[in-house]
Design a binder for these strands. Structure first.
Length: 800
DNA sequence: AGCACGCCGACT
DNA sequence: GTCGGCGTGCTC
């Protein structure tokens, strides 16, 4: 019997199957989806079994060294998904499989020099003896690599004094705990005790009230009985003692404490259509378009509940940033201990524990960020992707997958629905719903009596004209002081993503645009010129605004610290809580800050991206957006969409409870449709207008995109190869496809390597995938030599 | 990725 | 003549 194995060596040459002989004693045990230890050249490495077969074409096979799993860690379905992923995203197979498993299952390798059997350190050359003072093995990396010692090592190896040992270890150390259960009935157990054994009696009584038993240490502590007396009870056969696996975060058997809420008519109708998809095993993708506060989560919860009742499982994806304790609690309260949470803030071990609960079928609901889509369930009944439009569902490293695509692929296998939920659906999804590829369902009413907050747009150009040179408009200052004086709280939002330097006129708000691409030009220090990242258009830096001839034309960008300082100058008595990357670096500080704000320890919460999502504070009635357009002028065709989504989301933070909300959006471009339409809560209007732009400028959802990036140490070489690739592509592709570039990448040099890119816009291009693979093969050797890199991203989410 | 095999320059 | 540089190619 032979096993076809993908080895843990992510390179072009080893990206294939290797056959190994299965030792007879393991024939009944080995299954596809198990990790194995295999010999590979002189080393031992980890591998993934993809198939078992009776014969092989390979003449000289080696046997497997060890089985690393007793049950497969990947199901046949996930093995197939991995193949699909590697093909689709052009990554190595093993890279795809690694992405699907918790990192604790990945091996780390070490090379050691061990003293040969029966040898003593004194047998070795002098300079090696120091390493073996109190050990028989030394790590290769710990041996100083000077010429003399290397020579001695070589000699010692030849003489057989030492051996090289390759080790592969994963991090699956599982903690165990001593666990006791009562073996007899309470009366029986008590009867056999001596009358004066008070502590033992107490222990027995305590244990009788815990059917499932207790950890020995816990029992001892609670009953005041020592370990020796408890051990006597074990010896007597009254207690049963065993080693039990301990999860790092012992999950308390949390009872479900929340019950389904009454649904509005709207909610009930949406729920009904989702539920019937699960019931009829229909792999329908729903786009649930529900405005903030319309009760999407309750619909999710009841749809999941329905799946669970049919003995099926559920995956819920939430953007990393909103995977807060608040969010998780809602699921835990409804489904109790049936929930596993996969969060990147967990330690490797904790993450592995959560994953194991899923693997061992101890839970039926997985809540987590992007990678939770690979939860090894075998009977999926529903997949939910909340905040569907979030860009974090796309992984930026290999494998560059989009969780939404994986979800739909998995759902097709399990014949279950996918629910994409959002208040501001991505244009792609909304367009697919339009084309009936997704089933469109809507929640248009806010629950209860909440009304939309009143949104004011503050034109910063007017402020400047009126002599207000500060970064706060009069509208914002008025609303802020009023809010605080009423004893309520405010959130100030600064979009700092605007690091990319765009140039704007402070008088008329004009931003330099590329005449060919409708994308703002970025300022390049080195060339002292304005450039378009998409088509390569270049023009000199203007002295005066081309539109109004004002000289107040300059770069943009500011930080939260600066805002805090400025605000304190104007209102020295207010308490500000600043939340950004700096203040939330430490683990847990994120939650701490939010708790403090909830407890009204501050009047103003000032922050970036991270405060835009999912936060729900009782007393927040005012939200201010300091610079609405920073994101608008990023060199990204999704800039307007992102701006609209963000502004809509941020305004949703104001007045979610009894108190009415107010929003002020500061901007230099108040007439931009993404700003105007978000202020009037008009998604439909925005969709219409943005679709027009996308159609005109040939972007998704009208065209698919592929981005090929070439990097090289030498600028000329980089440009030359990029040119070659572009030529090759233009030969292969149909006339329908649009090829842009090659041009320098938005970040033209990273780590001393120059970057060029070609963008392909296409509709139906069956030859694209093969052509790209051909290019990869053509450059294989030069890539391997690290001379150049060719990076391919299908459907890139960010052009940066 | 590692590692072995293998073919050219400066040394005992 | 040999030691050792790292280019090339393989790992079931």
């Amino acid at each position: 019997m032979f096993a076809s194995v993908v080895v843990d060596v992510p390179t072009q040459q080893t990206d294939r199957l290797y056959d190994y002989e299965v030792p007879e004693s393991w024939e009944a045990l080995v299954q596809p989806g198990m990790r194995v230890l295999v010999p590979f050249g002189p080393r031992k490495i980890q591998g993934m079994v993809l198939a078992i077969k009776a014969s092989t074409d390979v003449l000289k096979t080696k046997p497997l060294i060890a089985l690393l799993d007793l049950t497969p860690v990947l199901t046949e379905e996930l093995l197939a998904i991995g193949k699909w992923l590697s093909n689709e995203t052009m990554c190595f197979l093993i890279t795809a499989y690694q992405a699907m498993l918790p990192s604790a299952l990945k091996s780390t390798y070490s090379k050691k020099l061990v003293l040969a059997d029966g040898r003593l350190p004194s047998d070795l050359p002098e300079e090696l003896q120091v390493f073996y003072k109190n050990q028989r093995a030394v790590l290769w990396d710990d041996v100083e690599s000077n010429l003399q010692t290397m020579k001695s090592v070589k000699l010692a190896l030849e003489e057989g004094w030492i051996d090289v040992l390759y080790e592969a270890k994963d991090q699956t150390s599982i903690k165990h705990v001593k666990w006791v259960t009562l073996k007899q009935s309470l009366t029986e157990a008590l009867a056999s005790l001596a009358a004066n054994a008070v502590r033992q009696r107490e222990a027995i009584q305590l244990l009788a009230s815990h059917k499932d038993g207790l950890a020995l240490s816990v029992l001892s502590q609670r009953s005041n009985a020592g370990y020796s007396s408890l051990n006597k009870l074990v010896e007597k056969g009254i207690f049963h003692l065993e080693e039990r696996e301990l999860y790092r975060e012992p999950y308390e058997l949390m009872e479900s404490t929340s019950t389904p809420l009454d649904l509005t008519e709207e909610q009930a109708a949406v729920l009904e259509s989702i539920v019937s998809a699960t019931d009829q095993s229909s792999a329908t993708t729903f786009l649930l378009h529900g405005i903030t506060g319309s009760g999407k989560t309750e619909v999710y919860l009841q749809a999941i509940d329905n799946a669970l009742k049919q003995d099926k499982q559920a995956i819920v994806l939430v953007p990393e940033i909103s995977l807060t304790p608040m969010m998780v609690d809602r699921f835990k309260k409804r489904f109790g201990s049936k929930v596993a949470v996969l969060h990147s803030a967990l330690s490797k071990g904790e993450r592995y524990d959560e994953w194991r609960k899923i693997h061992r079928k101890e839970v039926t609901v997985a809540v987590g960020a992007r990678s939770a889509i690979f939860a090894p369930f075998d009977r999926l009944g529903i997949v939910i992707i909340d905040e569907e439009h979030e860009t974090s569902y796309k992984q930026e490293e290999h494998p560059r997958y989009h969780a939404r695509d994986v979800a739909i692929k998995r759902a097709a296998f399990h014949k279950c629905p996918v629910v994409l939920g959002s208040a501001t659906p991505s244009l792609e999804s909304r367009a697919r719903a339009q084309k009936k590829r997704y089933h469109y369902v809507q929640l248009e009413k806010r629950i209860g009596k909440q009304s939309y907050p009143e949104v004011t747009i503050a034109d910063m150009r007017d402020e400047l004209k009126a002599g207000n040179r500060s970064m706060f408009s009069r509208q914002l200052m008025d609303a802020l002081t009023e809010t605080i004086s009423r004893g309520e709280q405010a959130v100030l939002f600064l979009n700092r993503r605007g690091f990319s330097t765009f140039v704007m006129c402070r008088d008329c708000g004009y931003v330099l645009q590329c005449p060919h691409c409708d994308i703002s030009l970025t300022y390049h220090k080195h060339h002292h010129a304005m450039k378009c990242h998409y088509c390569g258009h270049q023009e000199p830096l203007p002295r005066a605004c081309p539109k109004c001839e004002s000289e107040h034309i300059r770069f943009f960008g500011t930080g939260t610290q600066k805002v805090e300082e400025e605000l304190l100058k104007l209102l020295p008595d207010i308490r500000i809580l600043r939340m950004d990357v700096d203040t939330t670096k430490r683990k847990g500080s994120h939650a701490k800050l939010l708790d403090a704000f909830e407890a009204h320890e501050a009047d103003v919460l000032l922050g970036t991206q991270m405060i835009a999502k999912g936060l729900d504070f009782r007393k927040v009635t005012f939200v201010g957006v300091l610079a609405a357009e920073t994101m608008l002028h990023l060199p990204d065709f999704r800039a307007a969409e992102k701006t609209f989504q963000l502004l809509t989301q941020v305004s949703g933070r104001a007045g979610r409870h009894e108190l009415p909300g107010q929003v002020v959006i500061q901007t230099y471009t108040p007439e931009h449709y993404s700003i105007m339409l978000s202020a009037s809560h008009d998604y439909a209007g925005f969709y219409k207008q943005e679709m027009q732009f996308r159609k005109l400028s040939q972007y998704p959802p009208f065209y698919y995109l592929a981005l090929v990036t070439i990097t090289h140490e030498d600028l000329m070489e980089c440009a030359k190869e990029a040119e070659k690739i572009a030529r090759h592509l233009s030969q292969e592709l149909s006339d329908e496809a649009i090829l842009l570039g090659p041009v320098a990448s938005p970040i033209p040099k990273i780590k001393d390597r120059f970057r060029y890119q070609c963008m392909i816009k296409y509709k139906d291009e069956p030859k694209l995938q093969p052509a790209l693979k051909q290019i990869m093969a053509l450059y294989a050797e030069r890539i391997q030599k690290k001379e150049l890199q060719v990076l391919i991203d299908m459907q890139p989410y960010s052009m940066l």
